[in-house]
Amino acid sequence: MFEARLMNATILKKILDAVKDLLNEGTFDCSDSGIQLQAMDNSHVSLVSLTLRSDSFDKFRCDRNLSMGMNLGTMAKILKCANNDDTVTIKAQDNADTVTFMFESQNHEKVSDYEMKLMNLDQEHLGIPDTDYSCVVRMPSMEFARICRDLAQFSESMVICCTKEGVKFSASGDLGSANVKLAQTSNVDKEEEAVIIEMQEPVTLTFACRYLNAFTKATPLCNQVQLSMSADVPLVVEYRISDLGHIRYYLAPKIEE
């Protein structure tokens, strides 16, 4: 028996919004430590890794490890049927071929349940090595979303250059070129507005704007985003999900032909 309850549907709606542009379907691996989803986009350029810890759910029961393949478009449609302040309970029997989403209004007067067929997904699981990144940038997530949107107008790809002075985002194409430089915040009044750079070695990498823009769909989940970079390895874009866990996007760099 699997049962996980959140007092508020909003967070689950935001999580679905953050993945459904990249992934059509995904396998939710449930264990007593929580829920994990790892999946690549169709073109195998990026990887989404979602971790939700069991102790942060309002109720969590997982008697046996369970892998539930879900159509994320359908799941998003179902979650749209919940009001933001509804309690959400996800339930499945062991070895079941369906999962049930139950929504309960705050006054307990409306209870709805939606059953969804599970899918058998033959998905590759990738082992992500522990990496000490040369540069780790923390910055406001809205600012990152804005930069990705603005620079995508100029080119399909964006260069991210991180030095101890700051981080520079650049794009150039037929229309012209764009550069946005962010210096490390000297005076941090509000932590969520800070730009913080931890640099061991400077890094310059090139990434596809399309994927970066897809990652920024997670912006409503967290005020800050963390970018981790090292030469010749995928970028990690991480959004924390309050005390529930995190969503990490890995993006393969563009390389010289």
């Binding site: 690549m40 195998h44 350029v45 990026s46 990887l47 590759e124 699981h125 990738l126 082992g127 992500i128 090595p129 790809s157 090139t206 596809a208 390895v233 995928p234 890995y250 993006l251 393969a252 760099p253 563009k254 390389i255 010289e256 032909e257």
Partner: peptide, 13 residues
């Protein structure tokens, strides 16, 4: 520039 694949960095488990 060419787009590399994520599978060339992370091994299949």
């Amino acid at each position: 520039m060419a787009q590399s694949s994520i599978t060339s960095y992370f091994s299949t488990r």
